[in-house]
């Protein structure tokens, strides 16, 4: 079995298990009538819909993360060719990382890693 076929089989099995659980719950549940409820508000009614534009104060960290995440795209294939490419590969990769870490240090000094 190829890796793709195995992955799809696993996905199928997992989906079957999830469907089986929901099916069993459908057969055994004490009531099929959905109970109209409100989201938990410590006993009080919500004043508005909760889905809203969320004030994410750590958004600067996401920018840093994006830079490193792109770097990871290069680093995974890099692991395969370290000895084939020789010291140059290691030097280039770690100079690149050092530049990114310098960015982290700068962001840290600017207070981007603290938002409270």
């Amino acid at each position: 079995m190829s890796a793709t076929a195995a992955a799809l089989s696993l996905l199928g099995l997992a989906a079957l298990a999830v469907l089986g659980l929901h099916g069993a719950a459908r057969a055994l549940r004490v009531s099929a009538d959905p109970l109209p409820v409100m989201p938990f508000g410590s006993g009080l009614e919500p004043a508005e819909h909760a889905v809203s534009r969320f004030h994410v104060r750590w958004y600067t960290v996401t920018m840093l993360f994006l830079a490193f995440d792109m770097e990871m795209v290069f680093m995974y294939p890099w692991t395969l060719v370290v000895s084939a490419m020789g010291p140059g590969a290691v030097i280039e990769m770690f100079v690149f990382l050092a530049i990114l870490v310098a960015g982290v240090v700068y962001a840290w000094r600017e207070g981007a890693l603290r938002w409270t």
């Binding site: 508000g41 410590s42 004043a47 508005e48 534009r53």
Partner: peptide
């Protein structure tokens, strides 16, 4: 239910506000 309405934050941005009781 109404949607959340905006209000100024500490940086002067207009952001959605949720009312929640503890």
């Amino acid at each position: 239910l109404p949607m959340a309405e905006t209000g100024p934050d500490r940086d002067g941005l207009a952001l959605d506000r949720l009312h929640l009781a503890l």
